[in-house]
């Protein structure tokens, strides 16, 4: 018998065990508990930092206080007012590198180099913009956790709601006058969830009454499934539909067969 076992009937045992259990539970809770939405807990310091970043990087178009500006030609907007767009919109736009916009254009394109700010800076910017007016908060990890969502159901929702612009495989499609629906292959689940809630440019808002949070997770599950599953048929040719297949038939198929025909034709008298 060791020393610990010998003292198991010590009067302080109950208290000690209770303390250990409480500390362990507390630690576990701190580690595993879902964090509350950040917008709610944004502290004043974060907002102040965000305002500095905003004024240095965004105010040229969105105005010094996020009130938006016009170009001066007609009603053309240089930057829309941001009160009420919410932290989620900021996290999406800045997190995907769309903002700050490199140059004016028909559409803010996904950043080639990814986000230009660290996640901490994005959070500060988001906190500042959220302080301008209430809007959708940045979703918690559990909101876009699609591990238990039904991808097949997501597929049906995707075809009804998304495929007409983003194409059946989420490879993107053309819209009018140079605008386009981008490819969804590399968009993170968090950003998909955010853009569904906030909308952007030609992308409409799918709020929670339109598409329930469960449906959103199903759609995310479907997008992630089709982009991670191996391609059973071979090269996908961009998953663009019959146009790329026809091009392949004419360029590679015909060239290959004509190559053989030339070879056979040369083997003659």
């Amino acid at each position: 018998m060791n020393a610990l076992a010998a003292r198991r009937r010590h009067p302080a045992v109950l208290t000690v065990l209770l303390l250990v259990a409480l500390v362990a539970t507390g630690c576990a809770y701190a580690a595993f508990a879902p964090k509350p939405a950040q917008a709610a807990t944004a502290d004043a310091d974060q907002v102040a930092q965000g305002k500095k970043l905003f004024q240095a990087n965004c105010a040229t178009c969105h105005g010094l206080n996020g009130e938006g500006t016009k170009t001066g030609t007609g009603d053309q907007i240089a930057g829309p007012p941001l009160a009420g767009v919410g932290a989620a919109a900021v996290d999406f736009q800045v997190g995907t590198g769309r903002m700050p916009m490199a140059a004016p254009g028909v559409q803010a394109a996904q950043g080639v180099k990814g986000a230009q700010f660290t996640q901490t800076q994005i959070d500060q910017l988001a906190a500042y913009v959220a302080s301008l007016g209430p809007g959708p908060a940045i979703p918690a990890a559990a909101d876009y956790d699609y591990s238990n969502a039904d991808a097949a159901k997501g597929g049906e929702l995707f075809r009804v709601n998304c495929a007409m612009c983003h194409n059946f495989a989420g490879s993107g499609g053309a819209l009018t006058r140079g605008k386009y629906a981008p490819s969804l292959a590399t968009v993170s689940p968090k950003h998909i969830y955010e853009i569904l809630n906030t909308g952007s440019q030609a992308m409409p808002v799918f709020n929670d009454t339109n598409l329930s949070p469960d449906s959103k997770r199903e759609i995310i599950a479907y997008i992630k499934t089709i982009h991670t599953e191996p391609s059973p048929g071979g090269l996908k040719l961009g998953s663009m539909g019959p146009v790329s297949e026809g091009l392949f038939a004419w360029v590679f198929g015909l060239a290959l067969l004509i190559g053989f025909a030339v070879w056979l034709g040369n083997k003659s008298a």
Binding site: R159, V160, A163, F168, G172, G173, E245, G246, A249
Partner: peptide, 13 residues
């Protein structure tokens, strides 16, 4: 529903 990039095969293009 309908998908973006709905095209026939090339010969009906």
């Amino acid at each position: 529903p309908v998908t973006a990039g709905s095209q026939p095969d090339w010969y009906m293009g």
